[in-house]
Design a protein around this nucleic acid. Structure first.
Length: 731
DNA sequence: GCGATCAGCT
DNA sequence: CACAGCTGATCGC
């Protein structure tokens, strides 16, 4: 903040070209409406600059012309995730992030549905006068003020354990046990099992011997009679009444012996204790997800993957044997001890989840009555949809995964049952695509604003949505997750994952760098192993100005044209995104902007304070600055159509299309393009909600990752390597 | 008929 | 190119 620009920041933006409007003007300057051009410009400068001088605002820097060079030739070599050595190792040793010390355990709160407050409850009346985007339900990334507020919240994280217990039992998919039972059967005969069971329970510590099935004391019986007793228990078809179970052996009533065999076969007996401690029986074993394994303490990747792989095989095997009638005695004798399975039922009837799921694996094997019944779950439907025509699930790209965790990020196009923790960085179609109201794969983690949009626009139940606050450490399935402001669109977040093994993964989602990031303690302190980076503009030609400079340009351009009362101004926007631009225009010009009823409803979801909402109107007569969808402005034909609708009222349209692509390949180096067809003018202004190339480099330098995974324009190792090379280059 | 997906378009 | 997302055709339930 030391150097405040005294004059308009030196951006690459040209002066607006108002001459056409002047020539066409039929009226005089309307002082009541807008100032004359020169006054207008100076007012805009004053307003914007005063905003810049505000201690809370970000400093503007002249854009760096040196980086606008031709892109380097594509190196086209190497692997997808390139190993990187930081160019400049941090001058001081990085401090490992504090974990746990300041956390408050809120594990009980975890079961509660996400609270997405109503509008009435969310709008804060205590917002700042200078119109930051602070809201009652979070704070908008673009808000300068919000960042201050955010930084004050950076202490005292929360700890929410999101373990397997939060799984909705209805959506868990146990595999059927048949194949595995057969395998076990072939390895151990009944006698061995019975023997093993008795051996297993001989040592109660106090010399007593208890039946592992019913828990009663069988110390007095001979070894042979103990066998007889346990076999009788095995053969019983009714569950043991609970009042007959010795409380001491409650854990033993959960049969873990097949699980132990399972682990033993994998050479992973050392994890037996963890499974027994958590009472993982055969059913539960097959429902386990990778994050459950992490929760169990199976942190090393090798063993975890072994188990995951074995479980997948198990499920596949089950899939192929679904239509075989179940031999109930096999079930009882081989691992489902104590479970009541009437002999004339199909195993599929006991596992509604897998029956439907497996039917997808092999539809022709599914008994028609299962498929035809109303048991067909939403999950099956989703999987069916998710399958490509070839019948294969689409491969999950690396930027949708968090390495070392089973989490998925913006991966709703790749839905499958092996994950129950899905993160959504923000509410843009290309990130939530695939998410439907019938989503049933576990929890969705997102910001409050995003949760509200997902609920209201897609219809996903609030129970499925888990709101993550900004700048607070939350423990999810053994991994600490911290969300940071992404400065992209309202509700957008950057996700920082701190794994139990000490490694750290940062997923930026879509983001735009802001100077406060440099001092963010989380970003500064973490030792970043993998950076999953928004590489939308990962090319030196994308060297667009700061948002403030573009906002200033738009304000000046509007004021320069505004002396003609028959000029209609259009500002393009996405479903969400670009709000900052038209809100600042309204605030600086002290003119309402027309947004349309649907857009206003959406803006209401974003939790703007009243002070900001007052600048929006749904009465189109009340304003000649209209916010319209981007594609309206993208087409002169559409704008012509619009102009016909306003025939007589407006004789000139000046439209602003805010997009970073103005700097795209093959385009002239002009930072702002001006198009004109008759009485319609379109400015393509470089207002971007993604990082410029310069900012990308700065960010990478800041976090010094060991690996980078580009999340955009990543068509494979060659393109990924090329982007990484550009980011690491010195030019 | 409805919801979801996909191609085509800007 | 395609930011992000609309429209219309098609498919499956």
């Amino acid at each position: 903040m030391a150097s405040k620009p005294k004059t308009r920041p030196k951006s690459n933006l040209p002066e607006p070209a108002p001459t056409l409007a002047m020539a066409m003007s039929e009226g005089d300057a309307d002082d009541d409406d807008f100032q004359n051009p020169s006054q207008a410009i100076s007012l805009a400068q004053t307003l914007v600059l005063s905003s810049l001088k505000n201690p809370t605002s970000r400093p503007l820097k002249p854009s760096n012309g040196t980086s606008r060079k031709k892109p380097r030739p594509n190196p086209s070599t190497g692997k997808e995730n390139r190993e990187l050595l930081p160019r400049d190792p941090p001058s001081k040793p990085r401090v490992p992030p504090k974990i746990g010390s300041e956390r408050v355990n809120l594990s009980t709160a975890n079961d509660e549905p996400a609270r997405v407050p109503t509008r009435e409850a969310t709008v804060s009346d205590e917002c700042g006068k200078d119109g930051g985007f602070k809201t009652g339900i979070g704070y908008y990334a673009g808000s300068i003020e919000s960042r201050l507020m955010g930084s004050s919240l950076k202490n005292g994280g929360l700890d929410i354990e999101a373990g397997p217990e939060e799984e909705d039992p209805g959506e868990i998919e146990p595999g059927t046990q048949l194949r595995e039972l057969m395998n076990l059967c072939s390895e151990m005969n009944e006698e061995e099992i019975s023997k093993a069971v008795v051996e297993d329970l001989k040592n109660c510590g106090d010399g007593r011997v208890e039946c592992p099935l019913c828990g009663i004391d069988i110390s007095d019986l001979t070894e042979e009679l103990r066998h007889v007793h346990t076999n009788e228990c095995l053969d019983k078809e009714v569950p043991i009444p609970t009042d007959e179970i010795n409380p001491r052996s409650l854990k033993q009533a959960v049969d873990t012996s097949p699980v132990i065999s399972f682990l033993s076969n994998l050479g992973l007996s050392r994890y037996e204790d963890a499974f027994m401690r958590e009472e993982i029986d055969w059913d539960t074993l097959q429902w386990l997800t990778e994050e459950d394994l992490l929760t169990l303490g199976i942190v090393p990747l090798g063993p975890r993957k072994k188990i995951v792989h074995a479980l997948n095989d198990l499920r596949k095997a089950n899939c192929n044997t679904l239509n075989v009638e179940m031999d109930v005695s096999q079930v009882r004798n081989n691992g489902n001890i104590g479970k009541v399975l009437p002999g004339n039922k199909l195993i599929t009837e006991f596992f509604q989840g897998p029956a439907t799921r497996n039917s997808v694996c092999s539809p022709r094997n599914v008994p028609p009555r299962v498929e035809g019944a109303n048991q067909v779950s939403a999950q099956k439907k989703a999987i069916t949809r998710n399958k490509a025509n070839s019948g294969k699930l689409k491969d999950i790209p690396p930027w949708c995964c968090v390495p070392g965790t089973p989490f998925r990020v913006d991966a709703f196009r790749y839905l499958r049952g092996d994950c129950s923790h899905w993160f959504l960085t923000h509410f843009h179609l290309d990130h939530y695509q695939g998410l439907t109201r019938s989503f049933s794969y576990g929890k969705i983690y997102c910001s409050e604003i995003t949760a509200q949009l997902v609920n209201s626009k897609i219809g996903v139940s609030l129970d499925r949505l888990h709101v993550l606050p900004l700048n607070q450490k939350i423990r999810i399935a053994g991994t600490d997750v911290t969300c940071l402001d992404a400065n992209h669109c309202p509700g957008s977040m950057i996700l920082l994952f701190e794994l139990p093994n000490g490694k750290t993964v940062l997923h930026t989602g879509d983001f735009r760098f802001y100077p406060e990031m440099v001092s963010d303690p989380m970003l500064r302190s973490c030792r970043l192993h993998t950076l999953i980076l928004d590489t939308t503009y990962c090319n030196p030609q994308y060297d667009f100005p700061k948002q403030e400079a573009v906002i200033q340009f738009v304000i000046e351009a509007i004021q320069a044209e505004a002396f003609n009362p028959k000029t209609l101004f259009l500002i393009g926007s996405y479903t969400i995104g670009k709000e900052r631009l038209f809100l600042e225009v309204a605030r600086c010009l002290r003119k309402k902007v027309y947004v349309g009823a649907a857009k206003l409803r959406l803006l209401e979801c974003l939790g703007f304070p009243k002070e900001d909402m007052q600048w929006f109107t749904v009465n189109e007569m009340e304003s000649r600055i209209h916010v319209v969808p981007m594609w309206t402005i993208a087409s002169f034909k559409r704008m012509k159509h619009l102009s016909n609708q306003y025939y007589g009222r407006y004789n000139l349209i000046v439209a602003f299309s805010p997009t970073g692509w103005t700097f795209g390949k093959g385009k002239k180096k002009s930072p702002c393009r001006r198009w004109q067809q008759g009485t319609i003018i379109r400015y393509e202004v470089p207002y971007s909600e993604h990082c410029s190339f310069t900012e990308l480099k700065e960010f990478v330098r800041l976090v010094s990752p060991e690996n980078i995974i580009p999340s955009v324009n990543n068509d494979g190792p060659a393109s990924a390597d090329a982007m990484v090379a550009l980011l690491m280059s010195d030019s």
